[in-house]
C-alpha cells in the first residue's frame, strides 16, 4: 500500500496574528483529513516576497497556495474591484453573509482560472475607517481638504476625492513619520494600524465610518489542485472553510483587544459618525458601475442579500 505524499507550498506576506493562526490551522486540518497524505509546508513573513510577487509565483507553480488582500486581486481580475467600493456592506453581518454565500463567491473565485489559480476561501480583514492626527472627523465637512494617505488603487483614490479629502499616495512604511511630521493629516485602516503598526503613537482620533470591508483571499494554483485526488481536494476545501470560521472568531477577539489597547494605552478616541452624507457623496461611483455589467451584477447580488 504505497501512496505518494503530496506537499503543498503555502507562502504569505507579513500578516496579523489571526491570519497566521488560521493558516497554521488550515495545514493541520489538511494533514488530518488526508491521513497525512497531503502536507502543507510554510513560507511565512514575506520569505518568498510581497503579495503581488506571491500571486505570480502561484501562477507559475513555484508556490501552491497563498493569501493576499482582496484589494490587490483587482489587478488580476476586475470583478474583485467591487469589494473595494465604499459603504458596500451595511454591517459585519451583511459582509459575512455575502462572503459565506457560494452562489455569490464561486463565480468570483473562478474568475482567475485562466491565469492558473482560483480562490479557495476568504478571511476577515476587518473594516477600514479614517484616523487623524489633530482634528477628529465628525462630519463630512471635517474631512474636506484633509491630506489622507490612500491605498494604491483607483477605487480608493476616487472614493477619497468624492469625499472631499486630498488623497496622498505613499507606501505603508512612510505613513508613521508622515503623520508625525504633518505631511499627512491622517490615514485609513483597520484598528491594527493603531496598535501593531503603532500609528496610535501619532494619531489619536479614530472615526468609525467603516467605509470598506475588503476580504483577504486565499488562492490555490491549478497545478496544485490537479495533483490532488478528488477526496484530497475535498479535504483541502473543507479545511479552508473551517480555517475561515476560526479566523472570523480570532479576528473579532483580536480587534476588540486592539480597540481596548488603543483607548487605554494610547488614549485614542473613537467616534461614531452619521455615514448617510458619506454614502451620498460616493454615489457617482455606483452610477459608474452600471457601465460594467460583470461588476454591476456582482454588486446587485451583494445588495440583494442585505437586510434593509
Amino acid at each position: 500500500n504505497v501512496s505518494a505524499q503530496t506537499t503543498l507550498r503555502l507562502a504569505y506576506a507579513s500578516n496579523s496574528q489571526p491570519v497566521k493562526d488560521a493558516l497554521a490551522l488550515f495545514g493541520k486540518l489538511v494533514e488530518e483529513k488526508t491521513d497525512g497524505e497531503v502536507k502543507v509546508m510554510y513560507f511565512p513573513d514575506s520569505q518568498l516576497g510581497g503579495e503581488r510577487e506571491l500571486i505570480e509565483l502561484t501562477q507559475t507553480g513555484a508556490v501552491d497556495i497563498t493569501k493576499v488582500s482582496g484589494g490587490l486581486m483587482e489587478s488580476f481580475s476586475p470583478v474583485y474591484g467591487v469589494f473595494s467600493m465604499p459603504y458596500l456592506f451595511d454591517n459585519e453581518q451583511h459582509f459575512y453573509q455575502v462572503m459565506d454565500d457560494p452562489k455569490i463567491m464561486d463565480g468570483v473565485y473562478q474568475s482567475t482560472k485562466h491565469l492558473g489559480f482560483v480562490g479557495l476561501t476568504w478571511y476577515d480583514s476587518g473594516q477600514r475607517s479614517f484616523y487623524t492626527k489633530s482634528k477628529p472627523i465628525k462630519t463630512l465637512d471635517d474631512l474636506k481638504g484633509m491630506k489622507i494617505r490612500v491605498m494604491q488603487s483607483q477605487t480608493a483614490i476616487k472614493m477619497m476625492e468624492l469625499l472631499g479629502a486630498a488623497p496622498v499616495a505613499m507606501g505603508q512604511a512612510e505613513v508613521y513619520t508622515s503623520i508625525q511630521q504633518g505631511i499627512l493629516d491622517g490615514a485609513e485602516n483597520n484598528e491594527f494600524a493603531l496598535t501593531v503598526a503603532r500609528h496610535a503613537e501619532v494619531a489619536k482620533h479614530y472615526t468609525m465610518d467603516t467605509h470598506t470591508r475588503i476580504p483577504d483571499i486565499v488562492l490555490i494554483s491549478d497545478s496544485a489542485l490537479a495533483q490532488l485526488s478528488d477526496s484530497e481536494r475535498q479535504a483541502v476545501f473543507e479545511a479552508a472553510r473551517e480555517s475561515t470560521e476560526f479566523e472570523k472568531q480570532a479576528w473579532k477577539t483580536a480587534i476588540e483587544q486592539a480597540q481596548q489597547e488603543s483607548r487605554d494605552k494610547f488614549g485614542v478616541a473613537f467616534y461614531d459618525v452619521d455615514i448617510a452624507p458619506f454614502q451620498q457623496a460616493v454615489q457617482p461611483m455606483y452610477d459608474e458601475l452600471k457601465a460594467n455589467p460583470a461588476l454591476y451584477d456582482l454588486y446587485q447580488q451583494i445588495r440583494s442579500v442585505a437586510q434593509n
Binding site: T60, S75, S153, Q154
Partner: peptide, 19 residues
C-alpha cells in the same frame, strides 16, 4: 520574457497599465 508574458493581463493599481 516569462515574467512579461504572465503579467500582460495584470493591471497596475493606479496607472492602470499592464505590469
Amino acid at each position: 520574457g516569462h515574467a512579461v508574458s504572465i503579467s500582460m493581463t495584470q493591471i497596475s493599481p493606479v496607472l492602470q497599465i499592464p505590469m
